[in-house]
Design a protein around this nucleic acid. Structure first.
Lengths: 216, 216
DNA sequence: TAAGTCTAGTTCTCTAGAGAACTGGTTGAC
DNA sequence: GTCAACCAGTTCTCTAGAGAACTAGACTTA
């Protein structure tokens, strides 16, 4: 909770109405939350997990409840920056990064194989973290352990063929067709935080997204 | 252009500041545009074409200029409402709808085959329209000819196999694998305006989307 | 004609404050 | 102990207005 508009206006030497306008702006930006009769609170930036979760698997009965697949982390190590990741991270990037490999399963069956590239030194501590304790969603971990908020991402979907490792992890024949998702995720300042390449089993693959102004 | 805040406040019998707040709200909602020293204008609801254009084909040199594929309309007729379209349109729908079939080409090669379902009687006039004159983008036509604005859409991507007609139009073997996009498009009130099913040639298929708050 | 100046009209930012609406806690009556 | 009434503190909505910033067009001048 922050001081009342009265106190703040006095403290900063501006009129009450001016302070109100400033506070309203911060509310519009989603940084503050005001409750009449109670006070003004800093809003913790709760990112919309549903926005960033592709692979909206729906239950067989077609209910609208998305299921979060189980997650199995295979690997997490420091690697030299691959060129396409370099391109996404930009010129100010370090020469190494973290590469995290994991498989996501649904009803026990492997559905997605993910290669996640993360900036160093930002995510240095991830190497010493207990990966067993990491839940199925990465972005909440980024926020809680590293204070890094993912607020936007660009996905690009296409078709391709499985690599040696993705074929093995997805239990597919070598060079089988797969869905390919490439994601670039950013913090609110627009800095690229993560580069991700995902291979998915094609036959049950689904990607759902809503564009534009969500109707109320 | 609408009257000045001074005149409006007088006319409606409210204080100037109150009218200003009201106007600001309308600006925030994207309905008005105010220019200092000039006046206040109603903003025509220019929908973001780039938001709704899947198949962001990029040039071979990987420049970021999206290319709009050429469009060839095959068919436009009244048909009974298929069940999945009925489900999307909801209970208040008529028993018939318009079905529009078209192929979209890039560099002369067919890339997408689209089946577009539109509400009747809203789009009645489309049947008598000269389809040759319709440009490659449908939504601007909806806005200009019918006054219907598409403001949001939900896309669902998956994999499937070509139908008889889509295989023919895409010059693929029967039952070849294709990319499937299903779209439900809505007006600002949330009413479903369009149901669309698209088949795409998989090998050059790309779907790009940005989620969350776009960085400035 | 061309360029600069002026002016009425507009929006933008800020001040100063009154009263309503609402909340959470305290007090008092039973 | 329980419930109602009260109260201080908060945000919300609205009023009334001054002065700055800016624009488009009219006017003047070379």
């Amino acid at each position: 909770m922050i001081p009342s508009e009265n106190r703040l206006a006095e403290e900063y030497g501006v009129a009450l109405a001016t302070m109100r306008m400033a506070l309203k702006q911060l509310v519009d930006e989603g940084l503050l939350d005001r409750r009449r009769g109670t006070g003004t609170f800093v809003k913790q930036p709760a990112f919309r997990a549903d926005l960033f979760r592709f692979f909206h698997v729906h239950d067989v009965d077609d209910s609208d409840i998305p299921v979060i697949p189980e997650s199995r982390i295979l690997n997490c190590q420091e690697v030299p920056l691959p060129p396409e990741v370099q391109k996404a991270f930009g010129a100010d990037s370090a020469r190494h990064c973290i590469k995290l490999e994991r498989v996501r399963l649904w009803s026990g069956e492997p559905m997605l194989f993910e290669e996640v590239y993360l900036r160093l030194p930002d995510f240095e501590e991830l190497l010493s973290l207990n990966l067993k304790a990491v839940g199925p969603l990465l972005y909440p971990v980024f926020l809680e352990k590293f204070g890094i908020l993912i607020s936007s991402a660009t996905d690009e979907l296409s078709f391709g063929i499985a690599t040696e490792i993705s074929a093995k992890q997805l239990e597919l024949a070598p060079e089988a067709p797969v869905a390919v998702i490439q994601r670039i995720a950013r913090n609110p300042a627009g800095r690229v935080i993560e580069f991700r390449r995902v291979h998915g089993r094609p036959e049950r693959f689904r990607y759902r997204v809503t564009l534009g102004d969500q109707p109320a």
